[in-house]
Simulated assay, not measured.
Amino acid sequence: MRKIDEQKKLKIKAAVMTLVDQDGLTNLTTAKVAKTAGVSPATLYIYYQDKTDMLSRIYESVKDELHLGLLAELSATAPDLAAQLRAMLQFSVTQYRQQPRAAHFVQALWTNPEALDEQALQHGTELDSALGQLFTKLVADQAYVNLSRPAFELIFATPTQLLLRQPTVSNEEVEQLIDVVIKAVQQ
């Protein structure tokens, strides 16, 4: 068995994110990834089974990086659910502002779930994740509307969607939108 070269794996990840950002998901090929990463096409198959596996594992990694620190942020916030939701939305906005390429990559795959395997689709929605815990509280609280998880995910993605469309939007406008999102899910 060949040894895993973490530097090559990082180059592949960077190449995938760059190509998705520049050319879109539909134009992504393993040949382009290999060329951009400066590795042979066969090297990709040391790390990934196929294109779907590659996109899925990188998506999981990037999503984890974007959510890194969220649980600590929620723990430091007042226990009331509205404050927790506000903290989660503000955290997401901050992460998206600091890591726009990562945000664009996650967005591209979020809107094209057919490019991901089932494991990647479920990643981050487990009940032990920060978002999973927050969703469990939301569903149990009678002060909030009874929506499905996908419906809540769409509503809560609104501030970051605005940032993806208009990266220079003011903090004041983002905060207003966060207020609207929280009010929209309250009974």
Rank of each mutant, 00 (worst) to 15 (best):
L162W: 07
A31Y: 13
A31Q: 14
E65Q: 15
T168V: 06
A82H: 07
A102Q: 12
T77Q: 07
T18R: 07
D23F: 05
P79E: 14
V20C: 04
I12C: 02
M17L: 07
K13W: 04
P113Q: 14
V39D: 03
A34Q: 04
D23I: 08
V33E: 04
L163N: 02
E60L: 04
M88R: 11
K11N: 12
L85I: 06
A103P: 00
P167Q: 04
F91Q: 02
L81H: 02
L68Q: 13
A37V: 09
G24I: 01
W110K: 15
V16L: 04
K3H: 10
N112K: 06
T43S: 09
N27S: 14
A31H: 11
L138I: 05
I58G: 04
D117T: 07
A120C: 06
A157C: 08
R97P: 02
T160I: 10
D5R: 14
A83P: 00
P41H: 11
V169S: 09
L138E: 01
T158Q: 12
L138C: 01
L44P: 00
I178H: 00
D5E: 11
A31N: 14
F135M: 11
S170R: 06
D5L: 13
L109M: 12
K9Q: 12
K9V: 06
V180H: 12
A157W: 00
S61R: 09
T18G: 10
A108C: 08
T77I: 07
I58L: 09
L177H: 05
Q49K: 15
V93R: 01
Q133T: 07
H67L: 14
L70M: 11
T52Y: 03
R149T: 05
A87I: 03
Y45W: 08
K3D: 10
Q187A: 11
P41G: 11
T18F: 02
K13A: 09
A37T: 05
Q98M: 11
A151I: 13
L164E: 05
T111D: 13
S148Q: 10
L70A: 05
K3Q: 12
L109E: 01
L70N: 03
V145F: 10
L162F: 06
L10I: 08
R2C: 03
R86H: 05
K9W: 01
Q90W: 01
Q122A: 15
A72W: 02
A151V: 14
L28Y: 06
Q95S: 06
L163R: 05
Q49F: 11
S148I: 07
K13V: 02
Q119S: 13
L127D: 15
L55A: 02
A82K: 09
L154P: 01
K3S: 11
R97M: 04
V145H: 13
I155P: 02
V39W: 04
P150F: 08
A76T: 09
L25T: 07
G24A: 05
F156P: 00
Y45F: 15
Q133D: 03
R86W: 02
T30I: 10
I155L: 12
K3W: 06
T125I: 10
K32Q: 13
V33M: 02
L162C: 05
L66F: 07
D23K: 10
I58F: 04
A140D: 08
